[in-house]
Structures are given as structure tokens and as C-alpha cells.
Simulated scan of single mutants.
Amino acid sequence: MQRFIDEEWKKELKEKARRNTLFTLLAFILALGIPIGYVVYTQFYSMNHLPKGVQLMSLTSPNQTYTISIYRTPKRGNAKGFSIRGELTTASSGERRNIYWGDKADHPKVEWKDENHVSINDKVLDVRSDTYDWRRE
């Protein structure tokens, strides 16, 4: 009887050690994975952290509701050329958000199609909901 109890107790200790090891490994992966995932997202996918750049032009929509400002930013690192960032400003609230991030464009072509649609380098965007980011093609 004592031998049976000792074996059960040993089994229970092994299972507890296995659970503790698994929990520690999972905590370690999460502790590293969450910050790394955040950095990767903000640097490579989010349009909220784009470089400011130099303003090239600013165009107001036909009904004066929106203004699109176009900025040119030099590429980072060894890459040559420029990128274009389009920032939309809503007149009523003053809210600003990036709606266009284009690669390999020195001189952008910008034209309002109507009150809610703008064409930037032949990409037509509905300013109420659309965005264009060349990194997602």
C-alpha cells in the first residue's frame, strides 16, 4: 500500500513540474512575443507612424469638407528615391489621418473626383473609409 502511495505521489509531482515548465515557457513566449509583435506592426503595417516629410501640396475637396495634404519623404537606409504620404484633414473636426502611402513617386498626381473621392497617382480612394498602403500589395 505504501509503495502505491509513493508512486502516485511521484506521478503527481512529475505532472506538476511539467505544468510549471509549460506555464513558464508560455509566459516567456508571451513576454517576448507581444512587444515584438507591436514593434513589427507599428513599423511595417500601421499608417499612424509614418514619417512627416516635406509638404508638396494641399488640395481642398469641392464642397470644402476635406483637405488632402501631400508630403514627400526620403526613403530610409540605402534605398534611393522618395515616398508619398497623403494626409486627410476633416474641416469640421480638424481630425487628421493618413490615407495614402505610396512608394517610388517623386511627383504625385492628385485630383478630387467628387466630394468624397480623391485620385492620388491613379489610386481612387473614398476618403470616408479607404486607405492605400503600398506595403500591403
Rank of each mutant, 00 (worst) to 15 (best):
V127A: 02
L59K: 13
D122H: 10
Q64E: 04
A17Y: 01
V39D: 02
N121D: 12
R97Y: 07
S92R: 04
S129T: 14
D133N: 12
T131P: 00
K104T: 04
S46H: 13
G94R: 08
R135A: 13
L50W: 12
N48L: 05
D114N: 11
K113M: 06
V118Y: 13
D130R: 01
N78V: 10
E12L: 09
I99R: 05
I99A: 02
Y100D: 05
P51F: 08
G102S: 09
D106R: 11
N48F: 05
K11L: 06
R19H: 11
D103L: 03
Y66S: 12
W112P: 05
Q43P: 00
N78A: 13
F82S: 13
T73I: 14
Y41R: 05
G81E: 06
Y38M: 07
A105F: 09
I120T: 00
Y71Q: 07
R96G: 11
I34P: 04
E15H: 12
N20V: 12
D126I: 02
E15N: 15
N116K: 03
V110H: 07
L25F: 13
P35L: 04
R72K: 10
E87C: 03
F44R: 14
T89W: 00
G53S: 10
S92Q: 05
L88A: 00
S61C: 07
T89S: 05
Y100S: 03
S46A: 14
I29Y: 01
K11N: 14
I70C: 06
N63L: 12
G77C: 08
D133Q: 06
D103W: 10
K109Y: 15
H107K: 13
N48W: 09
N98P: 06
T73M: 09
S83C: 06
L88W: 02
L25T: 12
E87I: 10
W9Y: 15
A91L: 02
Y100K: 01
K123L: 01
D106C: 03
D126Y: 10
E95N: 11
G81N: 05
V124C: 01
V54I: 12
R96D: 08
D103Q: 06
M57V: 02
N20H: 14
L22E: 13
Y45I: 08
R136T: 04
S129Y: 11
H107A: 06
T89R: 07
I68K: 01
R136N: 09
L26V: 15
P108E: 04
V124D: 10
V127N: 06
N78D: 14
N63H: 04
Y41Q: 02
I120W: 11
Y45M: 11
N63D: 14
V127P: 00
K109L: 15
I34Y: 03
W9V: 14
